[in-house]
Amino acid sequence: MGNIIHGFPGFQYITNSDSGPPPTKKRKLEDGSSSIGGSMYEKDLEIHHLNSEIKRLSAIASSKLRNNNPNIADLSDANRPTKIAEKLSELYDNQWTDAFGDLEKGMNERDIIHFLRDILMKSYAECKAISSDNYFEKIQRCIECPLQFAGSGQLKTGSVLPDYLKHQIKEFRKFRAMHVVKDIEKAIKGKLNTHSKMNAGVDRFISSCVEITWLMVVQDPPLVLSATSSSKFDSKIFREYTKRGPNIDYVVWPALFLHEGGPLLVKGVAQGCVQHHRYR
């Protein structure tokens, strides 16, 4: 601020001018304002980065917690293990019954039972192979060798993908399971050798078998379908078909377990008998 002398005849007084700071001081003020703005922008970037890092670490921790952990279920998932168990029971009550009725014209009861049971178990075996054979190695090769055609070249002897990333890949595969099931069905139908007995009921049964078994194997960990048993009838694992007895004559329908060595999700069905003999 500067001083200005005002004058009238016989009288003078001094006033202060408010015309603003000199150029040098003004420049300093402007520079300070720019510095404050830049500092705030940098802090915003830092906060955004920290929030992103927290989310990333949280996702990794969550993945590690859920990875291969059957005790944590997503209740919003329409294809979670308990729902798959319900689908398997409905398959036996509905499509199995329809296919059985269609096959009665040319086959006896026991042969029909074995035929339909084997379709389900073969579907399960094929889906299991598709879902597990060098799965992560193939994904890694697509990332590291993108110019190679799928199925060509040598696979590495192991995957280096981190566990949290593997879990995210498995979660995405499970999310997309129903979108690929028709392609899986086409591949499996060609291996079942059911052409001579094919009809509308059997065709619907096969489609349902592939859909349900594919949903089983993409769980983390995979569900386990088992048609094996000791010769003794274990009522904790099987329920009777049409006959009771202390021994098993044959398995009609497999049991479903949450994972290998895990708890039972839904009982299988077996034909009981009195005599002790090896079931088929």
Results as ranks from 00 to 15, higher is better:
Val210Ala: 04
Ile188Gly: 02
Asp111Leu: 09
Gln275Glu: 14
Val202Tyr: 06
Thr82Ile: 10
Ala78Cys: 06
Ile113Pro: 01
Phe149Gly: 03
Leu116Arg: 04
Ala150Phe: 11
Asn247Asp: 02
Ile206Leu: 10
Ile188Asp: 04
Leu192Ile: 12
Leu155Ser: 03
Ile130Phe: 15
Tyr250Gln: 01
Phe238Glu: 04
Gln275Thr: 09
Ile119Asn: 02
Ser152Ile: 05
Asp133Phe: 12
Pro70Arg: 04
Val181His: 07
Ile169Thr: 04
Asn51Ala: 00
His114Leu: 13
Val251Ile: 11
Leu223Lys: 08
Ala78Pro: 02
Tyr164Ala: 01
Ser33His: 13
Val274Trp: 12
Pro70Glu: 07
Gly20Val: 14
Ala61Trp: 09
Glu137Tyr: 04
Lys189Ala: 03
Glu86Gln: 14
Lys43Phe: 13
Val252Pro: 03
Phe238Asp: 02
Leu258Gly: 01
Glu126Phe: 15
Leu215His: 11
His49Pro: 00
Ile60Ala: 00
Leu45Met: 11
Asn134Gly: 00
Arg80Ser: 09
Asp77Tyr: 08
Ile139Gly: 02
Gly101Asn: 13
Asn67Ser: 11
Leu147Lys: 11
Asn199Pro: 04
Asn79Tyr: 15
Ile143Tyr: 10
Ser229Cys: 06
Ser33Phe: 11
Ile119Gly: 02
Pro9Trp: 14
Val218Asp: 04
Tyr124Pro: 01
Lys170Gln: 11
Lys197Pro: 00
Lys43Glu: 07
Ala200Arg: 09
Tyr279Arg: 01
Phe100Asn: 15
Ala125His: 12
Glu104Cys: 08
Ser207Leu: 05
Ile169His: 10
Gly2Ile: 15
Ser35Leu: 15
Tyr13Ala: 04
Gly20Ser: 09
Val251Met: 01
Thr157Gly: 07
Tyr124Cys: 02
Asp163Met: 08
Ile237His: 03
His259Thr: 09
Leu120Asn: 06
Ser132Tyr: 07
Thr194Ser: 09
Ser235His: 10
Glu30Pro: 01
